[in-house]
Design a protein around this nucleic acid. Structure first.
Lengths: 118, 118
DNA sequence: CCAATACTAAAGTTCTTGCCTAACTATCCA
DNA sequence: TGGATAGTTAGGCAAGAACTTTAGTATTGG
C-alpha cells in the first residue's frame, strides 16, 4: 500500500532545488523581501518568484505584503515533518539491526542447552 | 551565492515521490528483491525499476544481483546528509531567535544605568 | 504628477519525469 | 529442453517543471 502524503511530496520537492534551498538558508537567518532573495540567484525575478511560490505551497515560507514590499519569513515547524519521516526510517532500520543482532546471539548460544531448530 | 550541492538535489528529489518513499520504507525493514518492492505499487514493473534507479543514483539504496534476483538494501548513511542540512537550518534560526531575545532584553534594561546606544 | 521601485501576471519554450507497452535476456526447475 | 520466473532495454507519449520575455499594477518619493 502506498502511504499517500502530498505534504511530504511538496516538502521534499521544494527542497530538491538549489535556488529554493538558498532561499531557505537565507531566510533561516532572518526575514527578507523578495528582491533580496532573488538577487543572488542566476535567474530572472519572475523565476525566483515561482520558486518562492513553491516554498510557500510547501509551507516552508510565509510572506506578507506591506506597501509594495513583500516580506518573507521561514516557517519554523515546516521542516520537522521531513525530519520526522527521516527519523522514522532510522528507527526502523536500527530496530531491524537490533533484531538481527539478537538473532545472531541466539545462534552463538544454540546447542548449549537447546539444540532444536526449525 | 548559490551553494551548489547536486547530492542534496538528488537526495531530496528522490524522496519527493510517494512510490520511492514507499520503497525506502519497505527497505528500512530489511532487504527485498525488486519484484517485492514493485508489487504494492500501482504501476508496471519497468516504472518501478526507474524509481529504483533514482534511489540508487541518490545513494539511498544499493542492490546486487544474484542469479536472476536483484536484492535491494537501504544505504543507512544516505539520509544523514538530508538530516544535516535540516538541522543546520534549525540551528541558524534558533541562534537568530536567541540574538533577538538578547536584543529585546537589552531594550528592557536600557536606561537603568547606561542609556547610551550606537 | 511622474518616474523609479517592487512585485505580479501571462504566455510560450524547452527539458525532465513518470508512465506505458513490447520485446528481450538470463536463470531456475521439472 | 522448454516453460515459468525475474529482471532489463528501448521507444514513445503526456504532463509538469523551470525558465524566458513582455507587459502589466501598486507604492513611494522628489
Amino acid at each position: 500500500m502506498l502511504n499517500q502524503s502530498p505534504d511530504l511530496d511538496r516538502l521534499f520537492h521544494a527542497l530538491a532545488d538549489p535556488a529554493r534551498r538558498a532561499m531557505v538558508e537565507r531566510l533561516s537567518r532572518g526575514p527578507a523581501p523578495v528582491s533580496e532573495l532573488a538577487r543572488p540567484l542566476p535567474m530572472s525575478l519572475p523565476a525566483a518568484m515561482q520558486h518562492l511560490g513553491v516554498l510557500e505551497a510547501a509551507g516552508l515560507v510565509r510572506s506578507e505584503k506591506t506597501g509594495r514590499v513583500r516580506t518573507c519569513a521561514i516557517e519554523p515547524g515546516a521542516l520537522s515533518l521531513a525530519e520526522q519521516w527521516i527519523n522514522a526510517r532510522r528507527v526502523e532500520w536500527e530496530r531491524r539491526l537490533d533484531r538481527l543482532g539478537a538473532y545472531l546471539k541466539t545462534l552463538e548460544h544454540e546447542g548449549e542447552s537447546d539444540g532444536s531448530n526449525g
